[in-house]
């Protein structure tokens, strides 16, 4: 028996919106720890790791550890039946090949029961080593999204350079080039507007903008984004989900000439 209840149902809608353009199908891992997922995009360039801890749910019951294979696109279609202020309950029984979503309006005057077919998905978990990063940038997620969107209209790649001067996002395309530098700004009264740069070593890495732009679909989940960089390693772009967990995206860099 697996059952979880999330009063803030819009959170699940936003989580699925944040991964649906990157991942087609995925196994959701259910355990007493929570509801989690690790999945790569079809070209194995990016990986997304989602964690929603059991403590963050109003009700969470998971009698045994198991995985539910779901099409993310189909899940997004099912979640379209939920209003933003609905309470969402997800239920699955042992040995069945369906999952049930129940959407309740806050005043309990409308209840939707949606059943979705599960899938058999063959997927391996990847071991992500705990790493010390050369540089960690924390900045407003809306700012990061806007920078990625602006640079996307000029070029296909973004080079992220962290130095004493700050963090620079640069691109080059047929029509020209652009670079945007953000300096550390921790003096703001609003912590969500701060830009904080922790640098052990200067770092410069190039990434495909089409993936980074997809990651910014998670912007509504968190006011801040954390970008962790090390030379010749995948970047980690993390959006924390308050009191629940996180969505982390890993993207392999472009290498060599």
């Amino acid at each position: 028996m697996f059952e979880l209840r999330l009063v803030q149902g819009s959170l699940l809608k936003r989580v699925i919106d944040a991964i649906k353009d990157l991942v087609n199908d995925a196994n959701f891992d259910c355990s007493s720890t929570g509801f989690s997922l690790q999945a790569m995009d079809s070209s194995h360039v990016a990986l997304v790791a989602l964690l929603l801890r059991s403590e963050g749910f109003e009700h969470f019951r998971c009698d045994r550890t198991f995985s539910m294979g779901m099409s993310i696109a189909n899940m997004a279609k099912m979640l379209k039946c939920a209003s933003n202020d609905d309470i969402i309950t997800i239920k699955a029984d042992d040995g069945t090949d369906t999952v049930t979503f129940m959407f309740e309006s806050p005043s309990q005057d409308k209840i939707s029961d949606i059943e979705m077919k599960l899938m058999d998905i063959d997927s391996d978990h990847l071991g992500i080593p705990d790493a010390e990063y050369d540089a960690i940038v924390r900045m407003p997620s809306s700012e990061f999204s806007s920078i990625c969107s602006s640079l996307s209209s000029i070029g296909d790649t973004v080079t992220i350079t962290v130095s004493k001067q700050g963090v620079t996002f640069s691109t080059k395309g047929d029509i020209g080039s652009g670079n945007i530098t953000c300096r550390q700004n921790s003096s703001t009264e609003k912590p969500e507007e701060a830009t904080i740069i922790e640098m052990k070593e200067p770092v410069c890495l190039t990434f495909a903008l089409k993936y980074i732009t997809t990651f910014t679909k998670a912007t509504s989940l968190s006011s801040q984004v954390t970008i962790s960089l090390s030379s010749d390693m995948p970047v980690v772009v993390e959006y924390k989900i308050a009191e629940m967990g996180h969505v982390r995206y890993y993207l392999a860099p472009k290498i060599g000439e």
Partner: peptide
């Protein structure tokens, strides 16, 4: 042009 890396060359299957 630089080549796109693959995530599987950094993180191994468990």
């Amino acid at each position: 042009d630089p080549k796109q890396g693959n995530i599987l060359s950094f993180f191994k299957r468990k």
